[in-house]
Write a protein that binds this DNA or RNA. Structure first.
Length: 550
RNA sequence: UGACCCAUGGUGUAAUGGUAACACUACUGAUUUUGGUUCAGUCAUUUAAGGUUCGAAUCCUUAUGGGUCAACCA
């Protein structure tokens, strides 16, 4: 914390602006369109915008960019607010571009009166045809030189609802030969007879992004309007409108959007995954959405840490999802209580164990001295992991094998004496003896074993469903592959284990609390848990340092 | 056959004309009642060619490579 970290390019700009006295405080905004759920890319923007004002002084608004009523819904507004809060940020003002529709309309009138905007009767196709291409200039619309009076009249009638959708637009009068396509008389307003989620039927004309975003920034006195690289060409128009309208000069700055390996990040693609049922919903734990990651068990602290570690810059990037997983493990290792769960059980009978049962004690978290202990019932019949036993083990196999000894976590050392199989040769039972004087915390046996296994007492075990997730796509960058990105979906991204055996304390597992299933990974209770049973989502596995055969 | 943005280990980000570094990954080893954690270490980097300079990742030129722009989406 006290360590001097170098500033990223935005921090340098802000630092200079503050030092020069250009601003006494900075104002940023997080401007989502309420037409989808937030994802890890948005988290980058949230952490950036809120982080900047926290660091340099000032505040951040949450502003919904709700200028397109046909795609936007209140459901999304609510999920976005919940996600931002969950990430740990609180906005100064909750605002909507639709709050400014009256002002924006006045701005349009002003532009018309300045002779800088006109009503165009051309169709969408005609406008596209007259637009030119990046290498060829466009041509002027036949309506480009209408009188100010006629434009005023027509625009007012557009607002009054006299014209059908698509019949007319309001366009800025700039330059149809401009090298920047966005400056070739961009559309400012279009007719949409559609109810808006907030203004209902008040309007039938709606401003376009370019005539709403910068103006909203300006109205809110946003000092640094931060967006992603694809808006670089918009900056010229952003500044042109501010200049002509003579309004508060917010400034736009762009950074490279965040990409992650083995997933897709565009809202369009994510929506497709949801609609076509490749995932169970926006909050499917395999989704890179905030809600998906939350359900998966990722913590807000881990996501914030990830964003900080990655940093920001202006070059295209694709961050290794392994870094995100590292941040998750790093956080969870400190806070997750340890529990024992056997995924694929095989029965072990301890032939010389004479008690009916006993309670043993185990620490909840070796990383947390104040984490306390819990009791776990132990008995002469336990389950261990089928993969923790091998009849013919390779060298350096520290687990159970004929004649070999292992420690049962927090309990005793056992030795494998006999293997029982069915007719088909499957192992049905492993017979062991235990060292009575090897009890954890009281070990006087003098025996040292290399391996420690997790286990669950047969008669005390409870069953649980486990949902194990793998990456959603088989390739690092599905969007850059040939063909449809959906061709690269990993068919095995969800594996369900139905009959796992868990220690009884997990019966009272709490939502939003992470557990480390010892030697297996981090898990969190899923919302589908209920009367039919408890269900856990695998958040992320433990780092696995064991390579068989070495 | 245009304009604009970008180019540093496998990945991400620093170095702001003065010894190319940090993190993740990978690999070694030590510790360990989780083959986890922790600790120690190793491998690995300036797209290319010119130029300016005592000195260039940094400034200039050109080339190459990647990205963006022709929605009544944002």
């Amino acid at each position: 914390m006290s360590e001097e970290k170098s500033l990223n390019f935005l921090e340098e700009i802000i630092d200079a602006d503050l030092k020069s006295g250009k601003y006494s405080q900075i104002v940023t905004r997080f401007p989502p369109e309420p037409n989808g759920y937030l994802h890890i890319g948005h988290a980058t923007s949230i952490v950036l915008n809120f982080g900047l004002t926290k660091k340099f002084g000032g505040y951040t608004n949450l502003r919904f960019d709700d200028t397109n009523p046909v795609t936007e819904e209140t459901e999304y507004v609510e999920s976005i607010k919940a996600d931002v809060r969950w990430l740990g940020f609180e906005w100064k003002n909750e605002l909507y571009a639709s709050d400014y529709f009256d002002t924006l309309y006045e701005y349009a009138i002003k532009l018309i009166k300045l002779g800088l905007a006109y009503v165009d009767d051309s169709s969408s196709e005609e406008i596209a045809a007259m637009k030119g291409t990046p290498t060829e200039p466009g041509t002027n619309s036949p309506n480009r030189d209408r009188s100010i009076e006629e434009n005023l009249d027509l625009f007012q009638r557009m607002r009054a609802g006299e014209f059908p959708d698509g019949s007319r637009t309001l366009r800025a009068k700039i330059d149809m030969a401009h090298v920047n396509m966005l400056m070739r008389d961009p559309i400012l307003y279009r007719i949409k007879h559609a109810p808006h989620h907030r203004t209902a039927d008040k309007w039938c004309i709606y401003p376009m992004y370019d005539f709403a975003h910068g103006q909203s920034d300006s109205i809110e006195n946003v000092t640094h309007s931060i967006c992603t690289l694809e808006f670089v060409p918009h900056r010229e128009l952003y500044n042109w409108l501010i200049e002509k309208l003579e309004i508060y000069p917010s400034r736009q700055y762009e950074f490279a959007r965040r990409n992650l390996t083995y997933t897709v990040m565009s809202k369009r693609k994510l929506l497709q995954l949801v609609n076509e049922k490749h995932v169970s919903g926006w909050d499917d734990p395999r989704m890179p959405t905030i809600s998906g990651m939350r359900r998966r068990g990722y913590t807000a602290a881990a996501i914030r840490e990830f964003c900080d570690r990655v940093g920001i810059a202006k070059r295209d990037n694709i961050v290794d999802v392994g870094l995100l997983e590292f941040c998750v493990r790093e956080d969870l290792n400190k806070i997750a209580q340890r529990r024992m769960v056997v995924f694929d059980p095989v029965k072990v009978v301890i032939t010389n164990y004479e008690l009916d049962e006993e309670m043993i004690h185990s620490e909840n978290n070796p990383e947390d001295p104040n984490g306390g202990e819990r009791e776990i019932p132990f008995s002469g019949e336990i389950y261990i992991e089928r993969e923790d036993f091998m009849e013919n083990p390779p060298k350096k196999y520290f687990r159970l094998a004929p004649g070999q000894m292992v420690r049962l976590k927090s309990a005793y050392i056992i030795k494998c004496e006999e293997v029982i199989k069915d007719e088909a040769g499957n192992i049905t039972e492993i017979r062991c003896t235990y060292l009575p004087n090897s009890k954890s915390g009281n070990d006087t046996s003098g025996v040292h074993v290399k391996g420690t296994l997790h286990w669950v007492s047969v008669k005390h075990a409870i069953t649980a469903e486990l949902r194990i997730y793998d990456r959603l796509f088989r390739v690092e960058d599905p969007s850059s592959e040939e063909g449809d990105f959906k061709d690269y979906i990993n068919p095995n991204s969800l594996q369900v284990i139905h009959g796992a055996f868990a220690e009884p304390s997990l019966k009272t597992a709490k939502f939003d609390e992470s557990y480390q299933f010892i030697r297996k990974g981090y898990f969190v209770l899923d919302k589908d848990s209920g009367t039919s049973g408890i269900i856990f989502n695998k958040t992320v596995g433990l780092k696995d340092g064991w390579k068989p055969g070495s």
